[in-house]
Design a binder for these strands. Structure first.
Length: 485
DNA sequence: TTTTGAGTTGTTCGA
DNA sequence: GTCGAACAACTCAAA
């Protein structure tokens, strides 16, 4: 019997065993498999992982390591430049092939392509796969041959074209290869003092098992009401909360798609809820298309007209927004939920993003950066595209005159008030009528609710009608090309 | 090539 | 209280 040489699987944003084509292909080769995760350094222009994401990554790597170990494998941890790390491992182990799943942001994408070329030139076989998206960004084309810039036609085309690949089970057995690994504890991913991760930890179970449990729970009921309740931050199960699991690739969109489809076909899942939920998965895809063709998506306006926007500079206002001290309860509740759990309900993300870019007239990049650092699901594609969408500078963006009214949005979507009462407990005793606008409450009501504006809860940092008008005036500058004459 | 219809998530105002 | 219109104009996608 012939002895197959070892191969390397380089894990990156695909921290799972099932539905992982790179891993399955390597195992199918028959030789030992080195399951590698690299703490990459020295990649020029790469964006450092945000704080909340580091926390998640730490837990997810532990989970991945446990999963590999239980199948006879091992997770090998190395730090350094990917090219150096791979070269060293190849030298140490005699590996002949490297497998990975593709990523889509720069500089990683170009780096991977260069690395593939140099390894191939050195006689090492390199194979890359798609584990992160339903379809590759370049696969779906408009009739004119370009990429889709409008969501609805993109979604229609995806819906009509996409056929899920067959289920790829986790390999039953992975033969490890004796080689050295760093210790995850030494990577410092878990926050040091002060350890802010307590509440975050209570909210989540990072790792592949946690992802599948979350999916199962969601498909077991909440998805049926999804079309109606997905905008309700006061309900615990109104959304799937799969975003961080998707971010780290603990589960892939194809796995989700198949599970939803199977549920619908078996009559367990309401078709309408399923359709709306899958369209949200498609928004994630759409973001990746935009990012793939616009590497600067997190930095520069997709629509260059927005280069003329007279954004303000106001550190104090930015700080108030970050800390959840704007005086608008729905905004503050959202920002505090983010800080405490590393996550925010999608409806509230839109409200706080609209507030930052319109009421405060601060650049969307400031919000994008804050989200990048504090969200456990901070995704280079979705985060950037969503911020630009709210700001109005993205492809297929919200019209500029759409300025969310934080009071109306609060009463409409947090109709029980449970959301604001949870995250702004100092307002909990206010009656529903004034919960979303304490500044409109008569003195006696505030007093009986133990609220003293400016003391126990801030006064609004901007006046809604005035801020709205200021935003509309500022946005008017983006309307059309100025004459060049 | 030209034309046509359409485009995630809203708010305000006035009848 | 309810309802429809205005809020702009542009670009995309497909016929």
């Amino acid at each position: 019997m012939s002895i197959s040489p070892p191969s390397i699987v380089w894990f990156r944003e695909d921290l799972r065993l099932a539905g992982n084509p790179a891993l399955s292909a390597a195992v199918a080769g028959g030789g030992p498999v080195i399951c590698l995760y690299i703490r990459e350094t020295g990649l020029q222009g790469a964006r450092p992982t945000g704080g909340a994401s580091k926390w998640w990554l730490d837990k997810s790597l532990w989970a991945l390591a446990a999963g590999l170990t239980s199948r006879g494998g091992a997770l090998v941890l190395r730090s350094g430049q990917a090219s150096d790390v791979l070269a060293a491992l190849i030298r140490e182990t005699g590996a002949q092939s490297v497998f990975w799943n593709r990523r889509y942001s720069e500089p990683e994408k170009t780096h991977d392509a260069d690395l593939q070329a140099s390894l191939t030139a050195a006689g090492i076989s390199v194979r890359s796969f798609n584990a992160r998206l339903l379809m590759e960004p370049w696969q779906l084309k408009t009739g004119a041959g370009g990429y889709y810039r409008v969501f609805t036609p993109f979604w229609r085309a995806l819906r009509a074209t996409y056929v899920p690949s067959p289920h790829l089970p986790a390999p039953k057995e992975i033969r490890a290869c004796e080689t050295g690994s760093e210790d995850l504890d030494d990577w410092g991913l878990h926050p040091g003092a002060p350890d802010w991760s307590g509440v975050i930890g209570a909210s989540w179970t990072p790792g592949e098992d946690g992802a599948h449990a979350r999916l199962a729970d969601f498909l077991d009921g909440p998805i049926n009401g999804y079309a109606e309740t997905r905008n309700r931050p006061d309900l615990d199960t109104s959304t799937s909360r799969l975003s961080p699991h998707l971010r780290f690739g603990e589960i892939g969109p194809a796995q989700i798609w198949r599970a939803v489809q199977a549920g619908v076909e078996a009559g367990r899942i309401d078709a309408r809820g399923a359709e709306v939920f899958l369209s949200e998965i498609a928004w994630r895809e759409f973001s990746h298309v935009l990012l793939n063709f616009n590497p600067e998506l997190a930095r520069t306006n997709y629509n260059p007209n927005f280069d003329r926007m007279p954004w303000r500079t106001d550190r104090e206002a930015l700080r108030a927004w970050q800390l959840g001290q704007t005086g608008y309860p729905i905004v503050d509740a959202g920002m505090r939920e983010l800080w405490h759990t590393g996550w925010m309900h999608n409806r509230v993300r839109m409200i706080v993003a609209s507030f930052l870019t319109k009421h405060l007239l601060l650049p969307w990049q400031a919000g994008e950066s804050w989200f990048w650092d504090t969200l456990v699901d901070a995704d280079p594609a979705a985060n950037a595209a969503s911020w630009q969408w709210t700001a109005g500078s993205c492809a297929d963006a919200a019209p500029y005159f759409r300025v969310f009214n934080p009071i109306t949005q609060g009463s409409k979507f947090d109709e029980t008030g449970a959301y604001v009462r949870r995250w702004c407990p100092e307002l909990a005793r206010l009656p529903d009528k004034f919960l979303h606008a304490p500044f409109e409450a008569p003195e006696a009501i505030l007093k009986s609710g133990n609220v003293e504006l400016g003391k126990t809860y801030p006064k609004p940092i901007v006046d809604h009608p005035a801020a709205r008008q200021r935003a509309l005036d500022a946005y008017a500058t983006t309307k059309k090309e100025l004459g060049t004459a």
